[in-house]
């Protein structure tokens, strides 16, 4: 059965290109351009994996979305997706450019994978595949 991918990113070019690449490999893709819309779509579209940009409307919007989805709060509306694989995309490669380093502080940020911009089509496909096969286990 084809896997569903949700892309949450405010850059329409990146979103379009990712969609093109993923659909060429038979993934079903839906998109959202900000955190709020993204969270809505998590509930309505029920994806198997989420690709999330770090900086959208605010510098740490990606983090906020992640925390909401991963919330262990018993009343959380995202409880069904709290374990869903999340791939975070960031323009910031090294922690030296960013005081809070997602890469080295991954204990604090519960995402499954990181992709650095610029993304490569092959990297994107490999990362999505990795996440889905891990989740399948």
């Amino acid at each position: 059965m084809s896997k569903k991918v949700l892309i949450i990113d405010d850059d329409p070019d990146i979103v379009e290109t990712m969609k093109m690449v993923l659909e060429a490999r038979q993934y079903i893709v839906d998109t959202a351009s900000n955190g709020t819309e993204g969270l809505e779509k998590v509930k309505s579209y029920d994806p198997d994996v989420i690709i999330l940009d770090v900086m959208m409307d605010s510098i740490t919007e990606g983090f906020q979305v992640t925390y909401k989805i991963r919330s262990t709060d018993p009343g959380s509306e995202y409880a069904k997706w709290s374990k869903i694989p999340i791939i975070m995309v960031s323009a910031i490669n090294t922690s030296s450019h960013f005081k809070y380093s997602p890469k080295t502080d991954s204990d604090f940020l519960p995402v499954d994978e990181f992709m650095n911009k610029p993304v490569e089509p092959e990297t994107l496909l490999a990362t999505v595949e990795r996440c889905l096969s891990k989740a399948a286990k």
């Binding site: 850059d11 290109t17 323009a91 910031i92 450019h97 911009k117 610029p118």
Partner: peptide
């Protein structure tokens, strides 16, 4: 720090998008 972060994002994001599109 905020300035550097914002510049990083503003420059690298569009460049990244261009590269991604061309590579694809």
């Amino acid at each position: 720090s905020e300035f550097v972060m914002v510049v990083a994002h503003e420059l690298k994001s569009p460049l990244g998008a261009i590269k991604f599109m061309l590579s694809s």
